[in-house]
Each structure stands twice: as C-alpha cells, then as structure tokens.
Design a protein around this nucleic acid. Structure first.
Lengths: 251, 251
DNA sequence: CTTCATAGTCAACGTTATAGACTTGTTACC
DNA sequence: GGTAACAAGTCTATAACGTTGACTATGAAG
C-alpha cells in the first residue's frame, strides 16, 4: 500500500551495525525450530484459559512462549488462522475417540448432544466461534454419520433424517454456545442482572403484570442445565412421533 | 520524527487566535447541543447497517456526525454503553406496541417467538449481544407477562410456567442469534463451507460413512428458517403435553 | 567451509479505545 | 451589561493491538 520504501531504506541504512551488545537487555534468541504450530496452539490455549479470549494477543503469545510476539507469524498467517487451529485441536481431542452406540437411537442422540454441549462448556470462551465456523475434519463427519445412523434407526426417511439432523445440530450448537457465552460474562454483570430482575419483579404493578408479580423467575438461572435437556427431549419426542407415523402404514 | 507535544501545542496556540483563516484545515466547530444521545445512536445504527458491527468505531461515528471522534465521550461513558443503548432503542421500537392475544395460547407463544426472531434477524449484527445482555426495560416485562399468561392458559402451574418460559426464551434467543450470526458471516466463507461439505460427502468412503454418503446434507441450508419452526413446535408440543397431564387428575 | 533457505527478531505503521487539557457557547447571578 | 461557572465540542496524546517488511542468526546440505 505505502510506497515509501525509500525512507525506510535510508533509515535502516543509517542504523548502526556495531558490535554485539551482549550487555543489558539483550535477550537470547530462541533456538531454531523451538517454535511450531502445536507449541503455539498450546500456549494460546493456556492464555485463553487463564485470561479469557480477549487475553489472546500476539504480545501475550510471545510472553508465554518466551519469544518475540511476531514470531508467531512464521507459523500462522493471521490471528484468525491460529484461532481456528486451536478450536480444531480441541475438537479433535474431544471427539477423537470412536463413539459406541448404545443400541438405542434415542440414547445415542442424547449421548452425542451431551458430549458436544460438554465440549462447548469446557472451552466456553471459544464457544461462539466454534458454533459458527465448521472445519470439515474427519471427527465431524464421524459425528454426523453416528447421528444419521441413529435417525435411521428411529425410522426416519433419509430426507427427514437430514432435516432433523440439522435441527438437533443447530439446537445443540446454539443452546450450548448461548449457555457458554453466558458463563463467560463478567460475574459482576450477571449478579447485577439478577438483582435488577428480582427487585423489578417486586416493584411491578400487580394489576399490570399479574403473572410476573407472582412468579419466581429468579429461582431458575439463565443457564440452568435442565433447560437444555428439556428442549432436547422435546425434539427427540418429535423425532419419535415422526418415525412412528412413517411406520404405521395402517392402524 | 515525532512532533513533540509541547512545541506543537504552543505553535498551534499562537496561530489560532488571529482571525478566521478560512484556511485549509479549519473546520467549523459544531454548534452547541447539536449532539445528543439519540443523534449518536442513529448515526451508530446507520454505520452498522452499512459496514457491519466492526465498522462502528469512534472515528466512523465522528465522520458520520461531522464531529470530532471524541465528542461522543461527552454523551456515552464508553463504547459498550453506546452499544447497549443502540440495542435498547431497537428493542423499544420492535416491541413497543402492545401485543394482542389471539386467544389461543399456542398461537400467542408462536407469535411472540416469531416476533423476537424477526427482530434478531433484522438487526443481525447485534444479535449476539442482544441475546446475552438483558436490560430490564418495560417492553421486556410486557413480553414476559404475555408469555406467562399464555402458559397459564396452557394449564401449566406457575412453577412449570417459569421453567418453560426459560426454555422458550433461551431457545428463541439462542437459535435466532445463531441464525443471525450465520447470516453475518462473510458470504465468501459460507460458500467455501458449502462447497467443502459437498465435495467431502462425495469423496467419503461409502463403507465408512454409508448414511453420509447417501444423504443430501447440502440440500438444506445451515440457517433454513423451517428449522426454527420445527424446534419451536416440538417445545410447544411438550408444553401441551405437560398442561394436559396436569389437568387429567384421573383417567 | 560456504551457501542458502528458514525461522526468530525488530522497528515501524495504521487503527483502535480512551484520557486529559483546552476552548467556546450558554446560562445564572450580581 | 458583565462575569463566573459550567457544559459541550475539540485536540493532543497514549498504550495496545494486528500486521508488514527488513534484518539476521541458525543449522543443514553440498
């Protein structure tokens, strides 16, 4: 973009190439090949676990690795690529092992849904990105195959299976990402919300908000884990009904 | 090469008081009170609509308003406060009018769910923040009251109503936010994902992924609107069942 | 030992949010 | 009318960020 190469050239030429400092602030250069993708990914993960996603900067990466911040660019094109690689690594770890069917399609779908949700909650800061950016690795296909097989055993036609797979998939991703994101909110903010809600529902005009005034909305947390399960079961019920309706050719 | 502060300051001060130079860079100061929260909010909204959420910077705000970038700080503590205010304004616009019950609890819940989803999709760049940051304005309480009333008519106990309200609320928020976020993704990325998925499912070993190889996953889009409705109906079915089971004291 | 690609380092740039000092318009009071 | 005080717009400065391109040490291959 900037064609001012001349100035930079002149400036660099004027810089002194004197002797080796070896003095005060001279930091030893990292040995060659001490950096690589996996080391950097591990460092990045450690940082996010410690300081959250906003703590993942090139500076922090450099500090964590004992290297210069920009060294990371030798291994990743940009920050986005690093982020996706971290997410992919986590995915591979969590979904790497083979899924064993319980034999019951419903249990199988419940199993895989829970597994994905647990993964999202464990690595909550990444949840939003994880839900949106798919990476088409083998582990992902294995999950899809597993779910499609369960839906087949639930007696769904291939066309229906695809649709309900999307429903389950989106449901699990969206709800898990939501709960994970909530869990990442500043605890201070969450407490404030809670108190506001509580006091508000006590102040409300009973005439204008009769149900709200009587209800105890605050008794159930925003990200109560039971909620996820109830919605999942509702969807599984719908699948069951759909499977049965397809089967009963006559009754 | 850095112009040192004090000198530059003194220089500009000395030239300043002379006259109306009308010279090159002299920009007229905005008249007093020409800026206020609503004007700034409108400008912010315009920017996001045009350039997406990442385009919302103080610089862009200043340009849009014909004012200095930092002027915004006279009206909002920081960027987060501005963002929340924008979201709140949109909320007030969309949910401001009274909801009229159809008389049927199921239609009512469907109505309000759709309304919220439409709101999220219309202002998609804000969707993620909207789903997480609640602001306890009156319009929000009206929605809750409306939903609680419908759940009451569905024959749910107050305790059940609170739980199912959370389920519907989280479902609508999470799924809408998800679809909205997907719609905000770089179209280029989405296309790439689509192609990758398509080619991958053609290459896959039929022996290892029998269902996947036969299925036409690509026929249904990631954020197909039917998905939302199917899940919502599954939840409404669950509510209906729950209401009926409570009613039938004996059968 | 020399060559050479590579990987680590460094300085620099353009943006960003934000703080503090400065300036100017408005209003309240004598 | 004059002036003090405050509010609101402007300006300069700063630290942190992602990213780039030039520089240089390293170590393997020949």
């Amino acid at each position: 973009m900037e064609p001012n190469a001349i100035d930079a050239d002149a400036a660099s030429r004027s810089t002194r190439r004197g002797s080796k400092p070896a003095a005060a602030g001279s930091k030893a250069r990292k040995p060659r090949d001490s950096l690589n993708r996996s080391v950097i990914i591990a460092a990045g993960l450690a940082i996010v676990k410690r300081d959250g996603l906003s703590g993942l900067t090139f500076q922090a990466l450099g500090d964590e690795l004992g290297a210069h911040a920009t060294s990371v660019y030798r291994h990743f094109r940009d920050k986005d690529e690093l982020l996706l690689e971290i997410i992919d690594t986590l995915r591979e770890n969590s979904y790497g092992s083979d899924l064993v069917s319980t034999g019951d399609w419903r249990s199988d779908l419940h199993l895989i849904a829970t597994q994905i949700r647990d993964h999202y909650l464990r690595y909550a800061p990444f949840a939003h990105e994880m839900s949106l950016r798919s990476t088409h690795r083998k582990s992902e296909f294995k999950n899809v195959e597993f779910a499609l097989d369960a839906l087949d055993r639930a007696n769904l036609s291939p066309e229906d299976a695809v649709i309900y797979l999307r429903l389950i998939g989106n449901y699990v991703r969206a709800m898990s990402s939501f709960d994970a994101s909530v869990s990442c909110l500043d605890p201070e903010l969450r407490a404030k919300d809670y108190v506001q809600m509580k006091s508000a529902s006590m102040i409300l005009e009973k005439s204008e908000f009769p149900h709200l005034a009587e209800s105890s909305l605050t008794l159930i947390a925003f990200d109560d884990p039971r909620i996820f399960d109830m919605g999942l079961n509702a969807i599984l019920d719908a699948i069951e009904v759909r499977g049965n309706s397809g089967k009963q050719t006559a009754t």
